[in-house]
Amino acid sequence: MTNDDVSSTSQALAFSNNASFVCVEDLPSSVYYVHISENSAFSLVAPPLNGSNYQSWSRAIRRALSLKNKVLFIDSSLPLPLMNDSLFIAWEKANNIIVSWLQAVVTPSIAKSVEWIEVVAYVWCDFKDRFGRGDFIRISDLQSDIIVLTQGDLSISDYYTSPKILSDKLDNMTSISNCACSSVCICGLDVVRGYRENDLTINFLRGLNDSFSDVRSQLLIVLAFCEEDLHTCIDSGTKMFLTCQASAS
């Protein structure tokens, strides 16, 4: 073996030994990794949580933390290491900075209410328990808003978007579990979800201006007698509606 071979082998061994001591928080792929530019004053989302916007705020927070590979800290799926665990320091650093991020995107009064909670998963649970539970009065208001919504001066695009926004808010407060059946649904959840989507479609059609009365009647007939699945019926009806709208214009 030549001197060059010996030197190369020694360098490789040295690199291998050093690699075994790389701290987990220094690996960009690690959930414990925090970039040097991410300080405690970093603002994840806007506007801040004020109590009434929890649904949209929490979705934005989860999306932002997902981009930073930090969702595991708030959904309690990341075990809290013991203080004598080698991961504790890395966990504590990441945990504390996420707590600071959350406190920076809530109103001052809400931030003060959780200032003594040190584990970010507990902070997240506190927000969910206080602001994320379905408010029966709010649910009733959303249902009423969907039923009485009419097109009025709105364009078709804006009118279609309005009930969808209300429906999405309602789904967040009264979500239906996903069907866990292997092939054909036997639990009934798909049927329940289909009823909700059907109600939304019917309410949309009924709220159209009188200038679309003929198209509305045709679409209601399509939905009433369509023998295919709901999504196919709605898709067929929507295409018919767009065709008739284009002809009218």
Rank of each mutant, 00 (worst) to 15 (best):
I156P: 01
E115S: 07
E118M: 14
G152Q: 10
W116M: 08
I146F: 07
S155F: 02
I139M: 03
V148W: 07
K128D: 00
A121R: 09
I146N: 01
L149T: 09
S167N: 15
F127G: 07
I146K: 12
Q151M: 14
F127Q: 04
D135F: 09
Y159R: 09
V120Q: 03
A121V: 07
F131A: 03
V114E: 02
I165H: 14
F136H: 12
V120F: 02
V123Y: 00
F127K: 01
R130N: 11
W124S: 01
L166Y: 14
S155P: 04
I165Q: 15
T161V: 10
Y160S: 07
I117N: 00
K128I: 04
I156H: 05
G134R: 07
D158L: 02
F131P: 04
D141G: 09
I139F: 08
F131V: 02
S162V: 01
R138T: 11
G134V: 08
S155N: 10
I165G: 04
S155M: 06
L154R: 11
I146P: 01
E115P: 00
S162Y: 01
S140N: 13
I137S: 12
C125R: 12
C125I: 12
Y122F: 13
E118Q: 13
S162A: 07
S167R: 11
C125S: 06
D135Q: 03
S157H: 07
G134W: 03
E118T: 15
V119I: 15
I139C: 04
W116K: 08
Q151T: 08
S144R: 15
L166H: 14
R138C: 08
V148T: 09
W116T: 12
L142M: 09
L149K: 03
Q143A: 14
R133I: 12
Y159I: 11
T161R: 12
I137C: 08
D153L: 15
K128C: 05
I147D: 11
D141C: 12
Y160Q: 06
E118N: 14
V123G: 04
D153S: 13
D168S: 13
R133P: 05
V114Y: 02
I117Q: 06
S157N: 04
V120H: 01
C125G: 00
L166F: 13
I147V: 08
S144C: 14
D168H: 09
Q151I: 07
Y122K: 13
C125Q: 13
P163T: 05
D129I: 08
S157P: 06
L149I: 11
S162P: 00
S144M: 14
F131Y: 09
L142N: 11
V119F: 15
V119R: 14
R133F: 05
L154S: 10
S155H: 03
L166E: 15
L149G: 02
Q143S: 14
T150F: 04
V114P: 00
W116P: 00
S167M: 13
T161M: 09
V114A: 04
E115G: 04
I147T: 10
R130Y: 05
I165R: 15
T150C: 11
C125H: 03
G134H: 11
I117M: 05
Y159K: 10
